[in-house]
Design a protein around this nucleic acid. Structure first.
Length: 270
DNA sequence: CCCTGAACCTGACCGC
DNA sequence: TGCGGTCAGGTTCAGG
């Protein structure tokens, strides 16, 4: 479900309820997530939240002695609920806060994770080999160009690889490539530096716009207060197979690339 | 190292 | 209404 904009929307939604508050309890009703929820998450109890941060699509709730590291997988979401509210289907974990609220983790498919890491988590195996944040100064066309030399995979798979750049998921990969006029199947290593400049700014723009609109609600994403995201209304190609291109009128094509549905315009993208 | 495809899960939807 | 197949916003892992 969530790509970077949805995770960032979630972070902004829960931060005001958590920052400088104390974790009172963690109730794990279903520990079978992507990785089993470790007993160590209980170390968070009694500690005050220093900050709520995001790295890639991970949420980091920083405490004195360590951090809770959450991932929403494909179908996860966090909601702010009154403590004690009866849990519903797939409400796997409640994070109790000393202000009468709980952060409730719901995840039907259980691809998400809820982990405890020592310190800030910077050296955790899941984080330490990740590429740069797309909205940071490190992420440029030059960087993409350099990183892609001699690589033959499709550029769409390339930009979705977290070791290259984090946070670009299936929706925004298609959208960014459309904006940059690049065909998603083009070999990553055969794209010019100039075109990578375009692509890098397209990725930034599309992610920033999506964050501004509260993310994209396709089926069921909603922010932590239950509001849907409105970026879906701006999607130029994603999910628009057979409909006409907003720039040239030819029909949008759909093709699977690296097991993911990919959408593009054969006229506008080369 | 690079790349591909399977795997992890549930639920919604479509055609018969 | 039921059943089987397909698909879904992510990521790791095994194997070539």
């Amino acid at each position: 479900m969530p790509e970077l904009p949805e995770v960032e929307t979630t972070r902004r939604g829960i931060e005001p309820y958590l920052k400088n508050r104390r974790i009172t309890a963690i109730e794990v009703r279903e520990p079978r997530l992507r990785w089993p929820v470790p007993e160590a998450v209980q170390q968070a109890c009694g500690q005050k939240v220093k900050s709520v941060e995001r790295r890639a699509k991970y949420l980091l709730i920083r405490l004195r002695s360590g951090s809770l590291m959450l991932h929403l997988g494909m179908s996860g979401s966090l909601r702010v609920v009154p403590s004690g509210l009866e849990p519903g289907l797939h409400d796997h974990i409640d994070l109790g806060i000393d202000n009468g609220k709980s952060i409730r983790f719901n995840d039907p498919r259980r691809f998400g994770s809820f982990l405890w890491v020592e310190g800030g988590g910077e050296n955790h195996p899941l984080l330490k080999n990740l590429g740069p944040e797309p909205l940071s100064g490190e992420f440029t066309g030059d960087y993409l160009w350099l990183c892609s030399r001699r690589r033959k995979l499709a550029v769409k798979s390339f930009i979705m690889n977290g070791h290259v750049v984090v946070g670009v998921g299936n929706i925004y990969a298609s959208e960014a490539l459309f904006r940059a006029g690049i065909h998603p199947l083009r070999a990553a290593g055969r794209i010019s530096k100039h075109r990578y400049d375009w692509l890098a700014s397209s990725i930034c723009d599309v992610l920033e716009e999506a964050i501004r609109q509260g993310g994209t609600t396709l089926k069921d994403f909603s922010s932590s207060d239950g509001q849907p995201g409105y970026f879906g209304q701006q999607l130029a190609v994603y999910g628009r197979e057979g409909l006409s291109c907003i720039q040239c009128d030819s029909p949008i094509r759909q093709k699977r690339i690296g097991q993911r549905a990919s959408y593009y315009c054969v006229t506008c993208q080369h």
